[in-house]
Structures are given as C-alpha cells and as structure tokens.
Design a protein around this nucleic acid. Structure first.
Lengths: 181, 181
DNA sequence: GTCTATATACAGATAGAC
DNA sequence: GTCTATCTGTATATAGAC
C-alpha cells in the first residue's frame, strides 16, 4: 500500500482539508501546495492540472467507499445500525473524502456529483434486503444524508445539532424499529 | 412590498440562481451583474461589496424563514407533515434561499452558517410539541435535512433519488407513525 | 442610478533550472 | 522530483463620467 508516492498522498490530504475547512473557493492549487509543504511546481508534477487533482480525490473516495460497503455487509449489529452510526463525521478517511467531494459537487463538478450518487446507490442496494420496503429504505438513507448534511455545514469545528452518545443510540433504535423487516 | 428597489431584488435573484446552479465559485460580482442585466458598477451601487451582497441574501432568507415557521404552525395536516413535505425543493423562494445560503456556509461564510443553524433551531422548537420525544424530533429533523442535502447536490437539474408523489406520501406516513405523540 | 475604465491581487498553467 | 520565474485571465474594488 506504499505504491502511491507519499508526496502525492500528502497533497490530496491537504486538498481535502482545505475543501472541508474553508470551502471550494479556498482550495486553490497555491493554497494546497502551501498546506502540503510543497511548491506550486512540485504539486504540478503529481497533478498536472486542477482537474487531475480533483480526479485524484474522487479516485480515493471510490476506493474508501468500496471498503466501507464491504465492512457494512458484515457488521456485527447489522448493516442499518452500522450505516446510521458511521454517518456522523468521525474524522475518518471516508467521511473526509465524502465531505470534500460534496464541496466539489456543489461547485458544479459533474464527476464528483456522479461519484456521490453512485456510492449512495451502492449503499442503498446493500441495505435494501434489510429494510421492510422502499419507504423504510428511503427513511434510512435520508437520516444518513441528514447527518452528513449537518456535518458538512459545520465549517471550522462548530458543534452542530448532531445526536451523539446515548442520543445516537436512541436514534438508531428508532430507525431500526421503523424500518426493520 | 415594493419598498426594496426592484433592481436590488433582481440582483439578489441572479446571485441566488448562480449559487444554486453553478456554485459559490461561479457566483462572482461580474457574473451576478451580467445575469441580473446590469453592469458591475450598477450592482455596486446597490451592494457596495461582496460581503454586502451576501448579507442581503441572508436577510432575505431570514424573512422567508420567519413566514414559513408561521405557516407551519397553522398547517391543516399538522406541522410534521408540512415540514417534511416542504423539505423538497419546489423551487419556491425559501427553498432557493436555503440552498444558496448553504453554498455560502460551505464556502466558510460564518454568518450564513449561523443563520441556517438559527432557522433549524426555530423549526425544531416549533415541531418539538408535536413529537413523542427528542429522539423522534431528531428523526424528523434529519429526514428533512436529508431531503435538503439531496436537493443541494442536484446541480444543473439532474433528477436525484428524492421520493416524490406516492413515495413521498408513504414517507410522511412512516415518519408520522414513528414520531407522533 | 447606472455606466466605462482602471487599479490591484490572485487564480491556473507553462518553461526551464537544479 | 522539486524548485523559481513568468504568462494570461479574471476577481474585487475604486474613480469618475453621464
């Protein structure tokens, strides 16, 4: 797993962090290079254009999502609980890539939007056998979307209105009661 | 209601449309002026800076949200059904202002984030008496957030995975069954 | 009120040295 | 692989004519 050059990964980390913390507008090539500790020229060796940098982020997102869907299908407390619980930003690599990609998508980046829709579709397919019907599936997906939306709006580390601890356990119980087969 | 100069409102409409359709980055002063059919100088007469333009949008959002909360509290089929149903982008002025403000918030605009959080808090306060407990309230709020998130990701008119027609009726019924007092 | 013209800063990208 | 220097376009904002 040390195949992708380390500097390349550092650049992607920096790009992601800028998108999450300061938004698309602030995530320029120059700012990304500075945050990654390389020069603009150095960045451009790894990613020859802004498009290439964005494509690199989407590629990382797809790989992380693939892993997540596999983990979800074997989760001990079941896919629905796993899915809702992991929809709160725990600062793990997948959450960060998802928020970063959603910033790009909302900036009009078509490939980012398509990638997010495709991942959402794969989650839905994996959850469908575990919900009573399509309405129940809609409910589960929308609660998860809602958690991500709130995460995405917390720029700069403000504590939002997202349930945590016991409140999250209660929410998961309610969702499961409302949607279980 | 003709007090705010007409050109001022047209500029705000154009700014909103650019934020929604092409994202924060595309919503420049120049592009906004062009879309509103005025020159850059003309725009700057009404809004002396980008900050002033953004503040104008937030002011409009606050006024529209105030109206919505009043309508919600007297809705014939109850506040919960009203709230969930109106969370899908019907292209009405409030929905547009909300999506536009969320673009700003995700670009790091602190006042936009604060306005959105305040509105969400007022919705929650109005709904709390109509839900069984705080967990049920969380569920309602998150389903609504999820609907907005999906709307926000549909840039350029792509049809997303949002329930409509009978599917929406079924979703509302499920949410009410899961959360009613 | 609305315009043109212009100042200043910074974006993305290229060239070529080391 | 990584750097500096530079080109070209465009962003926000100002000045001042109409």
């Amino acid at each position: 797993m040390s195949r992708p050059p380390r500097a390349r990964e550092l650049v992607l980390d920096a790009f992601e962090a800028l998108l999450i913390d300061e938004g698309e507008r602030a995530a320029t090539m120059e700012a990304t290079a500075r945050a990654a500790g390389v020069s603009k020229g150095g960045l451009l060796y790894h990613f020859g254009s802004k498009d290439a940098l964005e494509a690199g982020l989407i590629e990382r997102l797809d790989a992380l999502a693939q892993d997540d869907i596999e983990r979800m299908s074997v989760a001990p407390d079941g896919p629905v609980a796993y899915f809702v619980r992991t929809s709160v930003m725990s600062d793990d690599p997948l959450d960060r890539a998802l928020i970063a990609a959603s910033r790009l998508a909302q900036g009009g980046h078509a490939a980012a939007g398509a990638a997010l829709r495709a991942i959402r579709g794969r989650w839905a397919d994996a959850l469908r056998p575990h919900t009573a019907d399509d309405t129940a599936l809609d409910l589960v997906m929308l609660v998860s979307d809602g958690l991500y939306y709130n995460n995405a709006l917390e720029t700069g580390g403000l504590t939002g209105p997202i349930p945590t601890g016991p409140a999250m356990d209660a929410l998961i119980a309610l969702v499961e009661r409302s949607t279980k087969d």
